[in-house]
């Protein structure tokens, strides 16, 4: 799910989306967990990185269900048990009237769960990460596309990965993090 960078990583900077996608293809799946940093949501990255579909929908569904039960429960408790008020002989348990607030409660619960769930899944707020120390990495939010792969202990492998990235069009590569 969430990936913390523990060991050193090899970062490569690309000038275009296509160069970055090409590099991911060139690396194949022999270099461990690849991560990308892009200024906008690039199509086809998920499939190339083999990411599993996000499960945030379940979090939203759970939040919505909680909101729904809570909203209906409060109304039922308040108007049927705690403070029954006879309005022109109408039933105390008036489901059609209760449904409006129940709907709002469902939406509120689902929205809050989605938002909080997203923050938890992404480990936000996370104001610092080792990649931030890389000079020029800030362009990842503007117009540059970065790939990060776990840097390999074996020097030969590392050099091969580095060569592959350069061949695919990397503007430069940097090793970051670790001891």
């Amino acid at each position: 799910m969430r990936r913390e960078s523990h060991g050193p990583e090899l970062l490569a900077e690309f000038g275009t989306v296509d160069a970055m996608l090409h590099a991911i293809d060139a690396l194949g799946d022999s270099y461990g967990e690849i991560e990308t940093y892009t200024p906008y949501d690039v199509p086809d990255v998920d499939g190339r990185l083999g990411l599993r579909p996000s499960r945030i929908g379940w979090i939203a569904a759970f939040g919505g269900l909680c909101g729904m039960v809570t909203a209906y429960g409060i109304q039922w408790w308040a108007d049927v048990h705690a403070y029954p008020l006879n309005v022109g002989g109408r039933p105390l348990h008036a489901a059609p009237a209760f449904l409006l607030v129940t709907f709002e409660g469902t939406v509120l619960g689902a929205a809050l769960a989605t938002f909080i769930g997203l923050l938890l899944l992404l480990g936000f707020p996370k104001l610092w990460a080792p990649v931030d120390e890389v000079e020029g990495f800030d362009r990842a939010a503007i117009d540059r596309f970065w790939i990060a792969i776990p840097a390999l202990a074996n020097e030969n492998d590392r050099e091969r990965a580095d060569a592959l990235l350069h061949e695919a069009g990397a503007l430069r590569t940097v090793v970051v993090g670790g001891a």
């Binding site: 799910m1 969430r2 990936r3 991560e35 990308t36 940093y37 892009t38 200024p39 906008y40 949501d41 690039v42 990255v45 998920d46 990185l49 990411l51 579909p53 996000s54 945030i56 929908g57 939203a60 689902a110 989605t114 938002f115 769930g117 997203l118 923050l119 899944l121 992404l122 480990g123 936000f124 707020p125 996370k126 104001l127 610092w128 990460a129 990649v131 990842a140 939010a141």
Partner: peptide, 22 residues
Amino acid sequence: VFALGWRGRAREWQHYRVAYML
């Protein structure tokens, strides 16, 4: 501070896209 540490990782975009659509 307001960006909460957004770095545009593929894994961030993936959850974000679904959350936004939700």
